[in-house]
């Protein structure tokens, strides 16, 4: 079942065309990773999906709730962890506070941060912040989760705890689209890998095909450059 369908998306920033006609479908329960070098348009594509960027041309079909996790967390610094989580359910969904607290405490348990419920974001490590951000997005009960380089701002030793939470989500069949440089995550967790270069999708397929035996020479070069045996498992 299609959860989001994108048809011929174009996006330009001034003279620079960042997306040059992207077609893309994600099915329910699928985990898709989007890889590619900086400037390939992968983040812009993700941001078009939930209308943080307005596509200049093309169509996006999606009537599901979308959650998003950012590279820089974007937690609300003036609110405690639990307040960050209940904010949108209470204010946007008009959910009773008691119910929102209940859901949020379950989510904090899920990301392993029950004891941080009353902490403020400035008191958390990067990995903890990102786990709170994931829980905050999940509190709105999204049907599709977008991750925009969720581990790129983290110290190497903190990447694992975030990937672990994402892996758990994938195992629960959350539909996920992940822009990432974590090739191990792409290989182990995703059902489909999309390789983008200069605003177009160059290659697309199961990780075994795209990451292990790539045909496109550009992709091969990209994978050689990012290959890092010490990368987090």
């Amino acid at each position: 079942m299609e959860i989001i369908k994108i048809e011929n998306i174009h996006k330009r920033f001034g003279d620079l065309e960042v997306l040059k006609g992207i077609d893309f479908v994600a099915n329910k329960g699928e985990v898709i990773t989007i890889i590619g070098s900086s400037g390939s348009g992968k983040s812009t594509l993700l941001r078009c999906m939930n209308h943080l960027e307005k596509a200049d041309q093309g169509k996006i079909h999606c009537d599901c709730r979308i959650g998003m996790v950012f590279q820089n967390f974007n937690l609300f610094p003036h609110k405690s962890v639990i307040e960050n989580l209940i904010e949108a359910p209470v204010i946007v969904k008009k959910m009773p506070k008691i119910k929102a607290l209940e859901i949020s405490m379950d989510l904090l348990a899920k990301v392993g941060l029950t004891d941080k419920r009353d902490a403020y974001p400035c008191q958390l490590s990067g990995g903890q912040k990102q786990r709170v951000a994931i829980a905050r997005a999940l509190a709105m009960e999204p049907e599709l989760m977008l991750f925009d380089e969720p581990t790129s701002a983290l110290d190497p030793q903190l990447i694992g705890e975030v990937l672990q939470v994402m892996k758990k989500l994938a195992e629960e069949h959350m539909t996920m689209i992940v822009v990432t440089h974590e090739m191990n995550f792409a290989r182990e967790v995703s059902d489909r890998v999309i390789y983008m270069d200069q605003g177009v999708i160059v290659a697309e397929g199961p990780p075994s095909e795209i990451l292990v035996d790539p045909r496109d020479p550009g992709l091969r070069r990209f994978l050689n450059l990012t290959a890092d045996p010490s990368a987090t498992k």
Binding site: N50, I66, M140
Partner: peptide
Amino acid sequence: EAAKALGM
């Protein structure tokens, strides 16, 4: 962006 992504 965070607020918008949460539907506010």
